[in-house]
Deep mutational scan, measured.
Amino acid sequence: TRVETATETAWISLVTALHLVLGLSAVLGLLLLRWQFPAHYRRLRHALW
């Protein structure tokens, strides 16, 4: 049971790290898009909202 718990903890930390990385890359990508294509971003936002 001790090994299982350790594996579970490792998986949880791995998944958390993955989610953090994905979230950060998504935010960075959005910022980059907004910085590179302001007109396109505004049009996209206008279409979405």
Rank of each mutant, 00 (worst) to 15 (best):
E4S: 09
S25I: 09
L33E: 00
R34V: 14
H46M: 10
A47R: 06
R45A: 09
T9G: 08
T7Y: 04
H19A: 15
G23L: 14
W35R: 08
L44K: 01
E8A: 03
G29P: 04
A6Y: 05
R42N: 13
A47C: 07
P38M: 10
L32D: 00
T16S: 10
L22P: 04
L28G: 14
T5G: 02
V3K: 01
I12E: 10
S13F: 14
E8K: 03
V15D: 06
A26C: 10
V15M: 09
G23I: 15
A39H: 12
S13P: 14
E4R: 07
L30C: 12
W35I: 07
L32M: 08
L24D: 00
H19F: 15
T9C: 06
R43M: 13
I12N: 03
W49T: 05
L28A: 13
P38E: 05
L22G: 11
L14V: 13
L20F: 07
L24Q: 01
A26R: 00
T7A: 12
Y41E: 04
L48K: 04
H40Y: 14
H40G: 13
Q36R: 12
G29D: 00
T5C: 02
A10F: 14
V3T: 02
V27Y: 06
E8S: 11
A47P: 03
V15N: 08
F37G: 06
L32H: 02
W35C: 10
A17G: 09
R2A: 09
V27P: 12
T5L: 06
P38Y: 09
A26S: 06
R42F: 11
R34K: 14
E8D: 08
L33P: 00
E4D: 06
L44R: 02
A6E: 04
A17D: 03
T16Q: 06
A39D: 14
W49E: 03
T16N: 06
H19D: 03
A17V: 08
H40P: 10
V21N: 01
V27Q: 03
L24S: 06
R43S: 08
R34M: 15
A17I: 10
R42Q: 12
V15E: 04
R2M: 13
L30K: 02
L22H: 00
L20D: 01
A26N: 01
Q36H: 06
A47T: 05
R43C: 08
L28N: 02
E8R: 08
S25Y: 02
Y41S: 06
V21A: 14
T1R: 08
S13R: 10
S13G: 13
A10Y: 14
L18T: 10
L30S: 07
T16L: 15
L14H: 05
R42D: 09
L20I: 11
L22F: 10
R42Y: 13
T16W: 09
T9R: 15
V15L: 04
A10S: 14
L44Q: 02
L28E: 00
V21Y: 01
F37W: 13
W11M: 06
F37E: 00
V27D: 00
L48P: 02
H46N: 11
Q36Y: 05
R43Q: 08
R45W: 11
L31N: 01
R45H: 05
I12W: 04
A26H: 00
T16K: 06
G23V: 15
L31Q: 03
A39W: 06
L32W: 14
R45V: 11
T1H: 09
V27F: 12
R34E: 00
S13K: 14
H19M: 15
F37R: 09
G23H: 01
T1D: 04
E4M: 08
R34Y: 07
A39V: 13
G29Y: 01
A6G: 10
R2C: 05
T9V: 12
V21C: 07
R34S: 06
W35Y: 11
F37T: 03
H40D: 05
A39P: 06
T1L: 11
L28H: 00
W49L: 04
E8Q: 05
L33T: 03
L33R: 02
A47M: 06
H19G: 15
I12T: 09
V21G: 13
V3Q: 01
V3S: 00
T9P: 11
R2P: 12
L24A: 07
V3F: 03
